[in-house]
Every structure is written in C-alpha cells, then in structure tokens.
Amino acid sequence: MNTYYLGIDIGSVSTNLVLLDKHSKIYKKLYIRTQGQPINALKEGLKTLKQDFSENFKIAGVGTTGSGRQLGAVIVGADIIKNEITAHAVAALDYCPDVRTILEIGGQDSKIIIIKDGIVYDFAMNTVCAAGTGSFLDRQASRLGIPIQEFGKYALKSTTPVRIAGRCAVFAESDMIHKQQTGQNIEDIINGLCEALVRNYLNNLGKGKEILEPILFQGGVAANIGIVKAFEKELGKKIIIPEYFDVMGAVGAAILAKEKVMKTEKTNFYGFDLINREYKARSFECQDCSNICEVVEILSDSEPVARWGDRCGKWNVIENRSETSA
C-alpha cells in the first residue's frame, strides 16, 4: 500500500492540494478556485483526490497553510499548521537547495523571502495594500475581457512603453483607463501595468534587501509571462520558475507534515469520510462586552468543532479541548 502526505494551501483565490510520496516527489496536485468558499473548495478537492484513486492508499500526514490554514486544519485534522512564508521557503529549499531569493505573489499577498545558509534569513510581506497581487491582475483581465491565462502574452507584444502608476490599485486602474481612453495600445498598457507592479513590489518589499541568484518565482502570478519578463528586465537577473510554482505552499505544508509525522509517528487525519459530512460555518456577534467580536463557529453535522474570532477567548473552548485530546 502506498503512503502519501497531503499538503493543503487555502488561499484567498485558490485552494491547492498536493500529494507527496515518501521521497517528497509530487504524485498529484490540484488547483481549485476558492471563490470565497474555502470549505467547499477543500471538500471538492478531497473528493477529486479520492475519486482518482483506484489503488489502496494511505494518508500518513496532513499539513495546512495559507490564510485559511486554521479552518482547513479543523476540517481535515491536520498534523501541522504553518504560515505561508515558512511553507513556501521549505518547498523552495527542497526544489533548489541553493536558492537565495524567493519572490512569491499570490492572490492577496505578495512576499519576498531571503535565504541564507539554507534558512529564512529575512522576509517582507505586503501590509496595507494589495496592489500588485493576483486578484488585482484578475480584475484588470476581466475588465479588459482578456482571459487571465493570456494576460501576460499581451504584454510581450508591446512596442512602446507606457507608464502606469503602480503604488495603489485604485491609482493604477484610473491610470490604465485614462491611457486607454486616449487611444494607447492595449498591449502597451498591459506591459506598463506589469512593469508598474514589479516596480511597486521591488520598491516596497525589496527595499534594502540584496536580491541574489538563484531567484525562484512562486505563486499563481508566476504564470504571467509579462510579470516574469518585467522582473528579469528590472533586476537584470534570471528568474527560475519551479515546475509546481502554483502549489509550492501546499508542497511545503506536505513536507512539513511528513517531518512532523516522522517524529510523532501518528497522524490526526480524519480520513476521507469527512467529505460526506456537512460542514457549515456560521458567525455571530458576541454582545457580552463592547468589543462585539465577530465569532465564527464551524459546525460539522451541526456539531460545533471550533470557534474563533473572540478577543477574550471564552468562545474557543472547544478548540482547546480538541487540541488537548489530540
């Protein structure tokens, strides 16, 4: 019987699942659009994984990452819950042990990770602004009626540089519209946007950081050839896109799960039966004090399994109980 390690990355735009075999080779990967419904996306992913198997197999460990990592962990029973930065770095180091710089642009977040002597040495992540991330590109592509997969190719056809303001998504959009209304070429505008986003990324996240080679570019946006070229042009260095660039977070989570399970020698995974259960998230405002916390409750077959969001901690009791029993 084959054993696999499951990595789950629940992001704002996509939910990614990866199965790693014992030798950390990727056996299977899934990229599902989250569409604002992480629980459904996760269940759908697990269902697909299950259906595709004809052989007997075993999940030996599960790791979750991404902004929905906690939610995912409660539903599947994760062995390890890790932030995206660590997960991405672990996957990158596994792919290319000499890596020095990781550029990662996802749906809502962008980050830069500096590696020195095989560990995360420094990192930066966008804080207040999501300009230059995948969702903004998504939005612009749909506004222009271009499939997002084609978006980058348009940029390559540009002949004249057009400058687009890059530091704020609102400014960038106004600038694009104004330039389009004066008759500028769509290819040139898209190229201008790619360059603006790269400029914004390097000026904000890359500030004061030495970007050394090898440079890996991960996250959904790495599929955008326009952005890749703009990075290469701006940095004057070669950019490496790993084979599984779009699911590197999930790969990292699976590797971490494998390491954890090797220590604990057991998994918390609830098994694939969980896809038959009914999961619901409901939220309510706790009125017990003026903080009026938005408490989220996760129900599995109308049985509460976790709660969070409260500042005082009185609602998350079940979560603690399941942790101690695990």
Binding site: S67, K82, N83, E84, I85, T86, D109, I119, V120, Y121, D122, F123, M125, T127
Partner: peptide
C-alpha cells in the same frame, strides 16, 4: 489573521 501570519513567520525565522 494577516498580522498573525506575519508575526508567526517572524518568530519562526
């Protein structure tokens, strides 16, 4: 959540 992610990653590092 966003702040927690950054702080957690920082402490990890």
């Amino acid at each position: 959540a966003g702040y927690k992610t950054r702080i957690e990653a920082f402490v990890d590092m």
